[in-house]
Design a protein around this nucleic acid. Structure first.
Lengths: 215, 215, 215, 215
DNA sequence: CATGAATGAGTCTTCATTCAT
DNA sequence: CATGAATGAAGACTCATTCAT
């Protein structure tokens, strides 16, 4: 009846789940989807069995992380939504979402998989979509959006940038911004004329040297 | 695969090599990098050993496919370069490159890896880069390019779209065009004002139903 | 296998580890280093994975077996060391070591490899060397040793005989004794004059018939 | 009718066979039995098929090398047999045979296998055995041989030393002499009292440092 | 005859997942 | 409930041997 835990075991479970999720987030972000669940378990300081008790399989674990990300996106959408203009709100949200996506290597891979979508994420998705639609609608009302662009396009442009980030995370973790801004400008142009691209082009894949920023 | 063979392969070897390459291209395009070389061999109708005879390892095979793609890109750049205006040339090339990239799932993954870059691909890359730089320069001379954009940015924007294509190849193989055009417009705006986005937003990842194009 | 386990293995793990070690010892002894770990696993009645769980790779497994043998040698050296004369102690040890070595085909091969020497075996080696040096020193004090022979020569003469045993284990498992005694006599002559060689010459390699002992 | 080759093909064949045998001898001696027949073929400058045309399989090739060695041993036995005393003849032969054996890593491995004995080697073996028996008999007549030792024991003691040589070829290619002489002295003592062992004990297997010779 | 292309069984090793303790 | 031991299906790669050119 009360909200205090009647069964202490539940508390342990919660703690363990958190440990696993934290470890998984860290490892997946660092090393991508190739981490084994043994690695996750070890990093979390629990046995593999415990991981499997909390998450039926690897995909479920990814879904859990995904849920976390959706929460962060919801927060972001709420914050961005408070900007006075729709344009700023949309630009803030897009860049913020790209940033989140860029900070986590596993996310794109996870998104590609069919399985990881649970009811938990479904609910969060719905909430998020609603908020984002609102933001896009406001910006459109200000004539600040490329014609035809809708809230449903947002994940696509975000994940596009994520793929760039995945490729460059090691050498220049901020390289994605150049293309992120390009896309944001294309979707929702800034107030004045867009300036030159920021940052430097990506070193062509396979090149070992890093190109320096042009003057 | 290459015109620079040191010694002409025997007739049957050539045929088998082609079989392997074709099978590999098809399987990699369909199923990504996870295909085993056994699968490739089987699809090609040869033994695994034959695959390993032609390509020391999996990466070498990917490098071979990559070389093919680079050749196609070089062709594309040459064709596009013949357009009267730099603007058209650049837009043609970008869309064409996206198209090529979209048609082959393995390509992006291969590009991410360090190994598959051989001298063969390196040479092709250099040629390609030269052609593309020329195209971008022409377009810039016409003031048709987003300020700051260079030839080195081309692979990045192409691969960005490729990642979209990878996600949607199954359900709607042309979905990438919506975002491809968005990006092309951002890099090199069309003559008049850009119209509305083409196609429909992506079905949000995880959704099972396929959204139909709005009227 | 070792008394220095950092953390006691679970009961079933201990049992399985023993099964693996036993099977490995048997198979390696019978068929040399060419047994696969699948064979070992099957003979032990466990899955391959279990073998790999206990021993990171094949060399580690060999190192484990080696450790066992070193323990046996240490025991032997202790027992032999209790003989009243250094001469008897040394002769006992040499023959005993040859006997151990002759009973296990994998041992020589394992010794040839660089990898299988772990800290565990290193410690045992040190102990063993100390004991053997003591025995040799005692025998030398009695003037019972070939001039120049040291404790460091012991492994060499033992392995020499082992190579003979490897070749003859199938047809006449005791054939090595003839040469073992020859060498022991050379290193540490018996009290009186050495008698005739024991046993019969080896059937020349390649001969199919087995030579019988001369009267 | 004449001894000049009527069929030039035969000449080619002989040349190729020699190329293969030379390459094989070199590679097997250097790297042991693990060399592939591709390596042999390449080193010989011929195709694999040619190797298989000359030698039905790997074992047959080894048998061929073995035949070479037997020829060398026959030469050696003839030379040694010319020494005035049986003692010197036997000691010469034993040491010489050990030397031959020590110079070739593949030999011991080959001897262990059942297959490689062909009629060619069988004949050579017989010749050799006859010569060696003669040498041993002469030495025995001089009372210069350990009682019970026969010509049939010669291969055993030689191969014993070979196993030592195999283990030490890399680091100290002459290390086997210490034990070779020990065994020769045991079989056929020198005129006076045997002096101290020559050379230094083997570094215990697994040790990285090389023990220096005692004063 | 020589060549080297093709074969495919066999080797080692990894890892997602299950289940006894 | 937590643990980590056990499982075994793959996967990448090798190489002795055969056979088409």
């Amino acid at each position: 009846m009360s909200t205090t835990a009647v069964r202490p075991l539940r508390a342990d479970a919660v703690r363990n789940r958190a440990l696993v999720v934290d470890a998984a987030r860290r490892l997946f972000a660092e090393r991508g989807l190739d981490v084994t669940l043994h690695d996750v378990a070890e990093a979390a300081g629990v046995g593999v069995g415990t991981v499997y008790r909390r998450f039926p399989d690897k995909d479920a674990l990814l879904a859990g992380l995904l849920a976390d990300k959706f929460e962060a996106l919801v927060d972001l959408a709420e914050t961005a939504g408070r900007r006075p203009t729709g344009r700023d709100a949309l630009r803030d949200y897009l860049l913020g979402a790209m940033e989140l996506r860029a900070s986590d290597r596993a996310l794109s891979s996870a998104v590609l998989r069919a399985a990881p979508h649970t009811t938990e994420t479904a609910d969060l998705r719905a909430t998020l979509q609603h908020l984002v639609d609102g933001i896009v609608d406001r910006a459109r009302a200000e004539n600040a959006v490329r014609e035809g662009f809708t809230g449903d396009d947002v994940p696509a442009v975000t994940s596009m940038i994520g793929s760039i980030a995945d490729r460059t995370r090691e050498e220049s973790p901020e390289a994605w911004r150049r293309y992120g801004l390009l896309v944001v400008d294309a979707v929702c142009p800034p107030e004045g004329a867009p300036g030159p691209l920021v940052g430097a082009p990506l070193p062509p894949p396979g090149a070992t040297s890093c190109v320096v920023s042009p003057p």
